[in-house]
Design a protein around this nucleic acid. Structure first.
Lengths: 202, 202
DNA sequence: ATTTGACTTTTTTAGTTATAAAGTCAAAAA
DNA sequence: TTTTTGACTTTATAACTAAAAAAGTCAAAT
Protein backbone atom coordinates (compact mmCIF):
# COMPACT_ATOMS: atom_id res chain seq x y z
CA UNK A 1 0.00 0.00 0.00
CA UNK A 2 2.92 2.28 0.65
CA UNK A 3 4.85 2.23 -2.58
CA UNK A 4 3.74 -0.28 -5.21
CA UNK A 5 4.42 -3.32 -3.01
CA UNK A 6 1.93 -3.99 -0.32
CA UNK A 7 0.86 -5.83 2.77
CA UNK A 8 0.76 -6.14 6.48
CA UNK A 9 4.02 -8.00 6.05
CA UNK A 10 5.57 -4.56 5.97
CA UNK A 11 3.96 -3.79 9.30
CA UNK A 12 4.87 -7.08 10.93
CA UNK A 13 8.47 -6.51 9.95
CA UNK A 14 8.35 -3.09 11.57
CA UNK A 15 6.73 -4.66 14.59
CA UNK A 16 9.34 -7.33 15.08
CA UNK A 17 12.13 -4.89 14.32
CA UNK A 18 10.83 -2.45 16.90
CA UNK A 19 10.68 -5.12 19.58
CA UNK A 20 14.22 -6.26 18.90
CA UNK A 21 15.72 -2.80 18.47
CA UNK A 22 14.07 -1.68 21.69
CA UNK A 23 15.38 -4.62 23.64
CA UNK A 24 18.82 -5.14 22.11
CA UNK A 25 19.64 -1.94 20.25
CA UNK A 26 20.73 -1.52 16.66
CA UNK A 27 23.97 -3.43 16.62
CA UNK A 28 22.81 -6.45 18.58
CA UNK A 29 19.87 -7.10 16.31
CA UNK A 30 20.37 -8.98 13.05
CA UNK A 31 18.22 -8.97 9.97
CA UNK A 32 18.03 -12.77 10.13
CA UNK A 33 16.53 -12.59 13.60
CA UNK A 34 13.92 -10.07 12.61
CA UNK A 35 13.00 -12.23 9.63
CA UNK A 36 12.95 -15.35 11.77
CA UNK A 37 10.45 -13.81 14.19
CA UNK A 38 7.80 -13.66 11.50
CA UNK A 39 8.74 -16.84 9.67
CA UNK A 40 10.36 -15.17 6.72
CA UNK A 41 13.77 -15.50 5.21
CA UNK A 42 16.22 -12.71 5.59
CA UNK A 43 16.15 -12.03 1.87
CA UNK A 44 12.49 -11.12 2.05
CA UNK A 45 13.19 -8.17 4.28
CA UNK A 46 15.10 -6.63 1.42
CA UNK A 47 11.98 -6.75 -0.67
CA UNK A 48 10.38 -4.31 1.77
CA UNK A 49 13.32 -2.29 3.02
CA UNK A 50 16.40 -1.29 1.05
CA UNK A 51 18.69 -1.93 4.02
CA UNK A 52 19.00 -2.24 7.77
CA UNK A 53 19.61 1.43 8.27
CA UNK A 54 16.36 2.40 6.59
CA UNK A 55 14.48 -0.17 8.63
CA UNK A 56 15.93 1.21 11.81
CA UNK A 57 15.19 4.77 10.82
CA UNK A 58 11.65 3.77 9.96
CA UNK A 59 11.17 2.21 13.40
CA UNK A 60 12.50 5.25 15.19
CA UNK A 61 10.57 7.71 13.03
CA UNK A 62 7.44 5.72 13.60
CA UNK A 63 7.86 5.99 17.34
CA UNK A 64 8.56 9.69 17.13
CA UNK A 65 5.62 10.22 14.83
CA UNK A 66 3.21 8.38 17.10
CA UNK A 67 4.30 10.39 20.09
CA UNK A 68 4.01 13.69 18.27
CA UNK A 69 0.70 12.89 16.64
CA UNK A 70 -0.93 12.15 19.94
CA UNK A 71 -0.34 15.76 20.86
CA UNK A 72 -0.82 17.64 17.68
CA UNK A 73 -4.46 16.66 17.85
CA UNK A 74 -4.85 17.97 21.36
CA UNK A 75 -3.31 21.31 20.48
CA UNK A 76 -6.48 22.55 18.87
CA UNK A 77 -8.64 21.32 21.76
CA UNK A 78 -9.68 23.48 24.68
CA UNK A 79 -7.34 21.84 27.18
CA UNK A 80 -5.32 24.44 29.12
CA UNK A 81 -1.67 24.79 28.16
CA UNK A 82 -0.45 23.65 31.56
CA UNK A 83 -2.28 20.35 31.23
CA UNK A 84 -0.94 19.90 27.72
CA UNK A 85 2.60 20.32 28.89
CA UNK A 86 2.05 18.00 31.77
CA UNK A 87 0.45 15.40 29.55
CA UNK A 88 3.30 15.67 27.14
CA UNK A 89 5.85 14.96 29.84
CA UNK A 90 3.88 11.97 31.00
CA UNK A 91 3.88 10.40 27.55
CA UNK A 92 7.48 11.34 26.96
CA UNK A 93 8.50 9.54 30.10
CA UNK A 94 6.70 6.37 29.18
CA UNK A 95 8.20 6.51 25.72
CA UNK A 96 11.62 6.91 27.24
CA UNK A 97 11.33 3.79 29.35
CA UNK A 98 10.15 1.73 26.43
CA UNK A 99 12.66 3.02 23.93
CA UNK A 100 15.80 3.60 25.95
CA UNK A 101 17.81 1.40 23.67
CA UNK A 102 16.80 3.45 20.69
CA UNK A 103 17.69 6.74 22.24
CA UNK A 104 20.97 8.25 21.25
CA UNK A 105 23.34 7.21 23.98
CA UNK A 106 22.36 3.66 24.73
CA UNK A 107 25.00 1.03 24.23
CA UNK A 108 26.70 2.51 21.22
CA UNK A 109 28.92 5.26 22.54
CA UNK A 110 28.20 8.87 21.88
CA UNK A 111 30.77 9.76 19.29
CA UNK A 112 30.52 6.51 17.35
CA UNK A 113 26.90 7.26 16.53
CA UNK A 114 26.47 7.72 12.80
CA UNK A 115 25.61 11.29 11.76
CA UNK A 116 22.50 10.00 10.02
CA UNK A 117 21.05 8.78 13.31
CA UNK A 118 22.20 11.85 15.14
CA UNK A 119 20.28 13.90 12.60
CA UNK A 120 17.24 11.73 13.15
CA UNK A 121 17.21 12.44 16.88
CA UNK A 122 18.11 16.08 16.41
CA UNK A 123 15.18 16.33 14.05
CA UNK A 124 12.84 14.88 16.61
CA UNK A 125 14.18 17.23 19.22
CA UNK A 126 13.45 20.15 16.96
CA UNK A 127 9.89 18.97 16.47
CA UNK A 128 9.50 18.49 20.18
CA UNK A 129 10.72 22.00 20.80
CA UNK A 130 8.40 23.41 18.17
CA UNK A 131 5.48 21.55 19.71
CA UNK A 132 6.26 22.75 23.20
CA UNK A 133 6.64 26.19 21.69
CA UNK A 134 3.12 26.04 20.34
CA UNK A 135 1.80 25.03 23.70
CA UNK A 136 3.63 27.88 25.36
CA UNK A 137 2.27 30.28 22.76
CA UNK A 138 -1.20 28.97 23.49
CA UNK A 139 -0.72 29.57 27.18
CA UNK A 140 0.49 33.08 26.53
CA UNK A 141 -2.44 33.82 24.26
CA UNK A 142 -4.81 32.56 26.96
CA UNK A 143 -3.12 34.91 29.44
CA UNK A 144 -2.06 31.92 31.54
CA UNK A 145 1.65 32.40 31.01
CA UNK A 146 3.84 35.45 31.07
CA UNK A 147 4.84 36.96 27.77
CA UNK A 148 8.06 34.99 27.46
CA UNK A 149 10.55 34.22 24.73
CA UNK A 150 8.89 31.12 23.31
CA UNK A 151 11.87 29.76 21.39
CA UNK A 152 14.17 30.01 24.36
CA UNK A 153 11.81 28.60 26.93
CA UNK A 154 10.68 25.66 24.85
CA UNK A 155 14.31 24.79 24.30
CA UNK A 156 14.96 25.09 28.00
CA UNK A 157 11.96 22.94 28.80
CA UNK A 158 13.19 20.11 26.60
CA UNK A 159 16.75 20.52 27.85
CA UNK A 160 15.80 20.19 31.50
CA UNK A 161 13.89 16.96 31.06
CA UNK A 162 16.32 15.45 28.65
CA UNK A 163 18.98 16.26 31.20
CA UNK A 164 17.10 14.45 33.94
CA UNK A 165 16.74 11.41 31.70
CA UNK A 166 20.43 11.50 30.92
CA UNK A 167 21.29 11.35 34.57
CA UNK A 168 19.51 8.05 34.87
CA UNK A 169 21.38 6.38 32.05
CA UNK A 170 24.80 7.82 32.59
CA UNK A 171 25.10 6.60 36.14
CA UNK A 172 24.61 2.99 35.07
CA UNK A 173 26.64 0.55 33.06
CA UNK A 174 23.69 -1.39 31.74
CA UNK A 175 20.86 0.36 29.97
CA UNK A 176 18.14 -1.39 31.86
CA UNK A 177 16.21 0.87 34.13
CA UNK A 178 14.86 -0.40 37.41
CA UNK A 179 11.44 0.44 38.75
CA UNK A 180 13.04 2.47 41.54
CA UNK A 181 15.06 4.60 39.18
CA UNK A 182 12.06 5.09 37.00
CA UNK A 183 9.84 6.27 39.79
CA UNK A 184 12.50 8.64 41.11
CA UNK A 185 12.78 10.08 37.62
CA UNK A 186 9.03 10.49 37.51
CA UNK A 187 9.09 12.33 40.81
CA UNK A 188 11.85 14.60 39.57
CA UNK A 189 9.81 15.25 36.45
CA UNK A 190 6.90 16.23 38.62
CA UNK A 191 8.93 18.62 40.76
CA UNK A 192 10.76 20.18 37.85
CA UNK A 193 7.49 20.61 36.03
CA UNK A 194 5.89 22.40 38.96
CA UNK A 195 8.84 24.72 39.25
CA UNK A 196 8.78 25.42 35.57
CA UNK A 197 5.11 26.27 35.77
CA UNK A 198 5.58 28.58 38.71
CA UNK A 199 8.33 30.21 36.71
CA UNK A 200 6.26 31.00 33.67
CA UNK A 201 2.75 31.47 34.99
CA UNK A 202 1.21 34.90 35.28
CA UNK B 1 55.91 17.60 53.45
CA UNK B 2 53.04 15.29 52.79
CA UNK B 3 54.39 11.88 53.71
CA UNK B 4 58.07 11.68 54.49
CA UNK B 5 59.20 12.95 51.10
CA UNK B 6 58.84 16.58 50.43
CA UNK B 7 58.89 19.55 48.12
CA UNK B 8 57.17 21.75 45.71
CA UNK B 9 58.18 19.19 43.12
CA UNK B 10 55.11 17.33 44.25
CA UNK B 11 53.03 20.41 43.52
CA UNK B 12 54.60 21.17 40.17
CA UNK B 13 53.89 17.61 39.07
CA UNK B 14 50.27 18.06 40.06
CA UNK B 15 50.25 21.36 38.26
CA UNK B 16 51.57 20.00 34.99
CA UNK B 17 49.39 16.91 35.27
CA UNK B 18 46.29 19.02 35.79
CA UNK B 19 47.01 21.12 32.73
CA UNK B 20 47.53 18.08 30.53
CA UNK B 21 44.64 16.04 31.91
CA UNK B 22 42.32 19.00 31.49
CA UNK B 23 43.36 19.60 27.92
CA UNK B 24 43.86 16.05 26.65
CA UNK B 25 42.11 13.76 29.10
CA UNK B 26 43.53 10.77 30.96
CA UNK B 27 44.41 8.50 28.08
CA UNK B 28 46.01 11.08 25.83
CA UNK B 29 48.40 12.22 28.52
CA UNK B 30 51.62 10.30 29.18
CA UNK B 31 53.75 10.24 32.25
CA UNK B 32 56.78 11.14 30.12
CA UNK B 33 55.07 14.31 28.94
CA UNK B 34 54.16 15.39 32.43
CA UNK B 35 57.70 14.79 33.56
CA UNK B 36 59.07 16.60 30.50
CA UNK B 37 57.06 19.72 31.28
CA UNK B 38 58.98 20.29 34.48
CA UNK B 39 62.35 19.01 33.28
CA UNK B 40 62.24 15.75 35.17
CA UNK B 41 62.62 12.19 34.01
CA UNK B 42 59.61 9.96 33.98
CA UNK B 43 61.12 7.77 36.66
CA UNK B 44 61.06 10.65 39.10
CA UNK B 45 57.30 10.86 39.00
CA UNK B 46 57.21 7.43 40.54
CA UNK B 47 59.11 8.74 43.48
CA UNK B 48 56.15 11.00 44.26
CA UNK B 49 53.21 9.01 42.97
CA UNK B 50 52.81 5.23 42.99
CA UNK B 51 51.19 5.23 39.54
CA UNK B 52 49.34 7.18 36.91
CA UNK B 53 45.95 6.35 38.37
CA UNK B 54 46.82 7.83 41.74
CA UNK B 55 48.20 10.95 40.10
CA UNK B 56 45.00 11.38 38.13
CA UNK B 57 42.84 10.80 41.16
CA UNK B 58 44.89 13.33 43.08
CA UNK B 59 44.37 15.94 40.37
CA UNK B 60 40.64 15.38 40.27
CA UNK B 61 40.27 15.28 44.04
CA UNK B 62 42.27 18.46 44.31
CA UNK B 63 39.87 20.21 41.93
CA UNK B 64 36.86 18.92 43.77
CA UNK B 65 38.34 19.87 47.10
CA UNK B 66 39.12 23.41 45.99
CA UNK B 67 35.61 23.92 44.72
CA UNK B 68 34.01 22.55 47.85
CA UNK B 69 36.29 24.43 50.21
CA UNK B 70 35.41 27.77 48.68
CA UNK B 71 31.87 27.20 49.85
CA UNK B 72 32.20 25.45 53.11
CA UNK B 73 33.71 28.67 54.41
CA UNK B 74 30.79 30.74 53.24
CA UNK B 75 28.27 28.46 54.86
CA UNK B 76 28.83 29.89 58.29
CA UNK B 77 28.71 33.46 57.01
CA UNK B 78 25.57 35.59 57.03
CA UNK B 79 25.03 35.43 53.27
CA UNK B 80 21.44 34.47 52.44
CA UNK B 81 20.86 30.91 51.21
CA UNK B 82 19.67 32.06 47.82
CA UNK B 83 22.91 33.90 47.15
CA UNK B 84 24.90 30.92 48.33
CA UNK B 85 23.15 28.64 45.89
CA UNK B 86 23.58 31.12 43.12
CA UNK B 87 27.23 31.57 43.89
CA UNK B 88 27.71 27.86 43.94
CA UNK B 89 26.24 27.47 40.47
CA UNK B 90 28.45 30.21 39.15
CA UNK B 91 31.61 28.50 40.39
CA UNK B 92 30.38 25.12 39.29
CA UNK B 93 29.88 26.39 35.78
CA UNK B 94 33.36 27.85 35.55
CA UNK B 95 34.81 24.64 36.92
CA UNK B 96 32.90 22.69 34.32
CA UNK B 97 34.32 24.65 31.43
CA UNK B 98 37.83 24.30 32.71
CA UNK B 99 37.64 20.63 33.59
CA UNK B 100 35.37 19.16 30.94
CA UNK B 101 37.96 16.63 29.97
CA UNK B 102 38.14 15.38 33.50
CA UNK B 103 34.45 14.98 33.91
CA UNK B 104 33.09 11.52 33.55
CA UNK B 105 31.90 11.35 29.99
CA UNK B 106 34.53 13.17 28.05
CA UNK B 107 36.36 11.24 25.39
CA UNK B 108 36.47 7.94 27.17
CA UNK B 109 33.06 6.43 26.70
CA UNK B 110 30.66 6.03 29.55
CA UNK B 111 30.78 2.33 30.21
CA UNK B 112 34.52 1.97 29.70
CA UNK B 113 35.16 4.27 32.62
CA UNK B 114 36.92 2.42 35.41
CA UNK B 115 34.79 1.90 38.50
CA UNK B 116 37.45 3.61 40.58
CA UNK B 117 36.97 6.87 38.70
CA UNK B 118 33.23 6.49 38.68
CA UNK B 119 33.38 6.21 42.45
CA UNK B 120 35.51 9.34 42.57
CA UNK B 121 32.89 11.37 40.73
CA UNK B 122 30.04 9.77 42.58
CA UNK B 123 31.76 10.75 45.77
CA UNK B 124 32.05 14.33 44.70
CA UNK B 125 28.42 14.34 43.69
CA UNK B 126 27.45 13.15 47.14
CA UNK B 127 29.46 15.92 48.72
CA UNK B 128 27.90 18.46 46.40
CA UNK B 129 24.47 17.22 47.35
CA UNK B 130 25.26 17.36 51.02
CA UNK B 131 26.57 20.89 50.64
CA UNK B 132 23.52 22.05 48.75
CA UNK B 133 21.47 20.32 51.40
CA UNK B 134 23.11 22.39 54.09
CA UNK B 135 22.37 25.55 52.19
CA UNK B 136 18.75 24.54 51.79
CA UNK B 137 18.55 23.77 55.48
CA UNK B 138 19.97 27.19 56.21
CA UNK B 139 17.34 28.79 54.00
CA UNK B 140 14.61 26.86 55.73
CA UNK B 141 15.91 27.82 59.14
CA UNK B 142 15.94 31.46 58.07
CA UNK B 143 12.33 31.12 56.97
CA UNK B 144 13.35 31.97 53.41
CA UNK B 145 12.45 28.58 51.98
CA UNK B 146 9.47 26.34 52.43
CA UNK B 147 9.85 23.42 54.77
CA UNK B 148 10.91 20.98 52.07
CA UNK B 149 12.50 17.54 51.93
CA UNK B 150 16.13 18.60 51.97
CA UNK B 151 17.62 15.33 50.74
CA UNK B 152 15.29 15.11 47.81
CA UNK B 153 15.53 18.73 46.72
CA UNK B 154 19.28 18.95 46.95
CA UNK B 155 19.50 15.85 44.79
CA UNK B 156 17.09 17.38 42.33
CA UNK B 157 19.04 20.61 42.29
CA UNK B 158 22.26 18.84 41.37
CA UNK B 159 20.46 16.62 38.86
CA UNK B 160 18.93 19.51 36.95
CA UNK B 161 22.18 21.35 36.45
CA UNK B 162 24.21 18.25 35.74
CA UNK B 163 21.56 17.43 33.16
CA UNK B 164 21.93 20.79 31.48
CA UNK B 165 25.69 20.33 31.34
CA UNK B 166 25.25 16.88 29.82
CA UNK B 167 23.17 18.28 27.04
CA UNK B 168 26.04 20.46 25.96
CA UNK B 169 28.54 17.65 25.71
CA UNK B 170 26.34 14.93 24.31
CA UNK B 171 25.31 16.91 21.27
CA UNK B 172 28.90 17.27 20.13
CA UNK B 173 31.54 14.91 18.86
CA UNK B 174 34.47 16.87 20.20
CA UNK B 175 34.64 17.88 23.83
CA UNK B 176 35.63 21.45 23.18
CA UNK B 177 32.97 23.91 24.15
CA UNK B 178 32.51 27.07 22.17
CA UNK B 179 31.83 30.43 23.69
CA UNK B 180 28.30 30.40 22.25
CA UNK B 181 27.44 27.07 23.82
CA UNK B 182 28.89 28.17 27.07
CA UNK B 183 26.89 31.36 27.23
CA UNK B 184 23.67 29.54 26.32
CA UNK B 185 24.37 27.11 29.14
CA UNK B 186 24.92 30.00 31.49
CA UNK B 187 21.63 31.51 30.46
CA UNK B 188 19.87 28.20 31.02
CA UNK B 189 21.50 27.95 34.41
CA UNK B 190 20.17 31.38 35.23
CA UNK B 191 16.61 30.56 34.17
CA UNK B 192 16.56 27.18 35.84
CA UNK B 193 17.92 28.70 38.99
CA UNK B 194 15.22 31.36 39.08
CA UNK B 195 12.53 28.76 38.60
CA UNK B 196 14.02 26.58 41.29
CA UNK B 197 14.02 29.51 43.66
CA UNK B 198 10.43 30.42 42.90
CA UNK B 199 9.62 26.80 43.54
CA UNK B 200 11.10 26.61 47.00
CA UNK B 201 10.76 30.13 48.36
CA UNK B 202 8.15 30.92 50.95
C1' DA C 1 66.57 12.50 49.87
C1' DT C 2 66.17 12.78 45.08
C1' DT C 3 67.08 11.73 40.40
C1' DT C 4 68.03 8.93 36.49
C1' DG C 5 69.26 5.55 32.63
C1' DA C 6 68.55 1.22 31.47
C1' DC C 7 65.58 -2.19 32.12
C1' DT C 8 61.00 -5.27 32.32
C1' DT C 9 56.10 -5.52 32.07
C1' DT C 10 51.79 -4.04 30.51
C1' DT C 11 48.78 -1.73 27.37
C1' DT C 12 47.71 0.20 22.71
C1' DT C 13 47.84 0.17 18.13
C1' DA C 14 48.12 -1.65 13.51
C1' DG C 15 47.73 -5.20 10.69
C1' DT C 16 45.83 -9.94 9.55
C1' DT C 17 42.70 -13.48 9.18
C1' DA C 18 38.35 -15.85 10.14
C1' DT C 19 33.66 -15.47 10.93
C1' DA C 20 29.26 -13.49 10.90
C1' DA C 21 26.20 -10.48 9.21
C1' DA C 22 24.64 -7.39 5.37
C1' DG C 23 23.14 -7.19 1.01
C1' DT C 24 22.13 -9.21 -4.16
C1' DC C 25 19.88 -11.86 -7.54
C1' DA C 26 18.13 -15.41 -10.64
C1' DA C 27 14.92 -18.83 -10.07
C1' DA C 28 10.78 -20.79 -7.64
C1' DA C 29 6.26 -20.33 -5.53
C1' DA C 30 1.97 -18.19 -4.82
C1' DT D 1 2.58 -10.18 -11.27
C1' DT D 2 3.80 -10.07 -6.57
C1' DT D 3 6.24 -12.27 -3.15
C1' DT D 4 9.60 -15.43 -1.38
C1' DT D 5 13.87 -17.89 -1.13
C1' DG D 6 18.48 -20.48 -1.43
C1' DA D 7 22.76 -19.76 -2.81
C1' DC D 8 25.73 -16.37 -3.52
C1' DT D 9 29.05 -11.98 -2.93
C1' DT D 10 30.36 -8.15 -0.27
C1' DT D 11 31.05 -5.78 3.90
C1' DA D 12 31.64 -5.34 8.77
C1' DT D 13 32.90 -7.50 13.23
C1' DA D 14 35.56 -10.24 16.23
C1' DA D 15 39.58 -12.83 17.40
C1' DC D 16 44.53 -13.18 16.93
C1' DT D 17 49.06 -11.61 16.44
C1' DA D 18 53.21 -8.70 16.08
C1' DA D 19 55.16 -4.22 16.75
C1' DA D 20 55.28 0.01 19.18
C1' DA D 21 54.44 2.84 23.00
C1' DA D 22 53.66 3.72 27.42
C1' DA D 23 53.62 2.20 32.33
C1' DG D 24 56.19 0.87 35.92
C1' DT D 25 60.87 -0.93 38.48
C1' DC D 26 65.36 -0.58 40.36
C1' DA D 27 70.34 -0.39 41.17
C1' DA D 28 73.53 3.12 40.72
C1' DA D 29 74.63 8.18 40.62
C1' DT D 30 73.95 12.78 42.42
Amino acid sequence: MDNGKSDDVFLSILDSAEKRFCRYGLKKTTMAEIAGDIGLSKASLYYYFPNKEELFKEVVSQGHKTLLKEFEGLLSSGVPAEDLLHGYLEKRLIYFREFVHLSALSLESINSLKPVYARLFENFRKKEIRLVGEILAKGIAAQDFQNLDVAYFSDLFIAIFQGLRHNVIVKKDTVNITETEYSLLRKQYESAFNMFMKGIKK
